[in-house]
């Protein structure tokens, strides 16, 4: 058996297996990452992640564990419904990323809700 075959064959086999794993896993579990207006215009099936700004109509119930609010970007808005603990910085005006799906009645049922905070490691810099 030549050197190329001896080391090349296992490498090719491993590469093929890894390639297949990546292909099958990313096909099955990747999600679209959209803005609210993109979601409104194309409405893909399945779970999506949507980024939008929390509006002033936050309503909490069930001891604060259930929340509804409107998420909005430049042009479009959508009602969001979520059950679970909220990020510490959750309040009207911040951008959130919700993961879930849009139901037939137009309400977005979020499975997870993350606050998008572009400067986690620093506070606002002084304006000079």
């Amino acid at each position: 058996m030549t050197m190329a075959l001896r080391w090349g064959l296992p490498a090719v086999v491993v590469a093929a297996c890894v390639g297949y794993l990546i292909y099958s896993a990313s096909g099955g579990s990747s999600e679209y990452y959209l803005t609210v207006s993109q979601l409104r215009s194309q409405a893909p099936a399945g779970d999506v992640r949507v980024a939008g700004v929390v509006q002033n109509d936050v309503q909490k119930s069930d001891g604060g564990l259930h929340v509804t609010f409107t998420a909005k970007d430049g042009t479009a808005s959508m009602p969001v419904e979520y059950t679970g603990t909220l990020p510490d910085i959750f309040q009207p005006g911040i951008t959130v990323v919700v993961e879930g799906r849009l139901s037939g009645d137009g309400v977005f049922h979020a499975r997870t809700l993350l606050a998008k905070c572009p400067s986690r490691f620093s506070t606002q810099p002084y304006t000079q």
Binding site: V18, A25, S30, Y32, Y33, L34
Partner: peptide, 28 residues
């Protein structure tokens, strides 16, 4: 690596896509 750069690559080609923990568990 693929999971990390997928948002970049898919964003350049069209709609941005992301993968979550399920992808890493299934593939890794």
């Amino acid at each position: 690596f693929w999971g990390t750069i997928l948002p970049l690559v898919s964003g350049m080609l069209g709609t941005e896509r992301v993968v979550g923990a399920a992808y890493y568990e299934r593939a890794g």
